[in-house]
Amino acid sequence: MSVEWGPVRQSRTHELVLESIEKRVVAGDLKAGDRLPPERELAPVLGVSRSALREALRVLETIGVLVAQAGRGPDAGARIVRHPDDALGRLLRLHVALGSYNLHDVLESRVMLERQNFQGASENAVQEDLDEAERILRLMRAPEVGAAEFSDLDTQFHVLIARTSGNQLVSTLTSAVRESVRPMILEALEAAPDWPAAAGALNDEHTELLRLVRAGEGARAADLAEQHIRGFHGRLVVDET
């Protein structure tokens, strides 16, 4: 029996650099705060060109695990960091826009995450967190606040609640999912036929959510969070069948 052969896949050079750095991170050789050697030293050690090394470093910056500072001095060079929130949000927003994920599934995921967040916040939030949440809600109630500013403050409120829930991964996922639908949320807010009435209704729900969290009524807060999200996001989901 004859065997048919075909070309093997050749990894691009920067992918090999990424693999090398990833292995060091997984092994614990590289940790958050560590600096990579200068390009002129690291490239020959890895046996790659400086352009291939730079391409790999740009990928790591994009996914939020590295920051590169140009110039000279103690802050120059590439440093390992932990900034997953913005990176995951950007990535998920692009995939939602490209249709990689069904919008209905994204919104259902947000419901599950927010239920967990408000339940957890009612058990773990400290006074400082609650005071900050109240400050955000005061800003949202200002009569001069338009849809764009309202949307930004709404994001801050929900992300703050997520961060007080006691689960950092759930917090990061919440931030990413919320960021992925930010353009659609803003569009829906701007399309409200009666903006003051719409803002007032949403503010009332936010106020009650915070009251339940303060009171430690996690189950009721979780139920209201689901009602709050479904009531608003129901306008965004288009029947794709």
Results as ranks from 00 to 15, higher is better:
Met1Gln: 15
Ser2Glu: 15
Ser2Arg: 15
Glu4His: 13
Arg9Glu: 08
Gln10Ile: 14
Thr13Asp: 15
Val17Pro: 05
Leu18Thr: 04
Leu18Val: 12
Lys23Gln: 13
Arg24Ala: 07
Ala27Phe: 00
Gly28Ala: 08
Leu30Ser: 07
Lys31Pro: 05
Asp34Lys: 07
Leu36Asn: 11
Pro38Arg: 14
Arg40Met: 02
Arg40Gly: 10
Pro44Glu: 09
Pro44Arg: 02
Val48Pro: 02
Glu55Ser: 06
Glu55Trp: 06
Arg58Pro: 04
Val59Ser: 09
Leu60Tyr: 00
Thr62Phe: 14
Ile63Trp: 12
Gly64Thr: 06
Leu66Pro: 01
Ala68Lys: 14
Gly73Ala: 09
Asp75Gly: 11
Arg79Lys: 14
Asp86Met: 06
Leu91Pro: 01
His95Glu: 14
His95Val: 07
Val96Cys: 00
Tyr101Val: 00
Tyr101Arg: 04
Asp105Phe: 04
Asp105Gln: 09
Glu114Gly: 07
Arg115Ser: 07
Gln116Glu: 11
Asn117Leu: 09
Asn117Asp: 03
Phe118Asn: 05
Gly120Trp: 01
Ser122Met: 08
Asn124Val: 07
Asp129Trp: 06
Asp131Arg: 13
Asp131Gln: 12
Ala133Gly: 10
Glu134Cys: 03
Leu139Ser: 06
Arg141Val: 03
Ala142Met: 01
Gly146Met: 04
Ala148Ser: 11
Glu149Pro: 12
Asp154Asn: 15
Gln156Leu: 13
Leu160Pro: 03
Ala162Lys: 08
Leu169Lys: 14
Val170Met: 11
Thr172Gly: 11
Thr172Ile: 06
Thr174Asp: 00
Thr174Ile: 01
Thr174Gly: 10
Arg178Cys: 01
Val181Asp: 08
Met184Arg: 11
Met184Asn: 09
Ala188Ile: 02
Trp195His: 03
Ala199Arg: 12
Ala201Lys: 02
Leu202Glu: 01
Asn203Tyr: 02
Leu212Cys: 09
Leu212Val: 02
His233Pro: 01
Gly234Val: 06
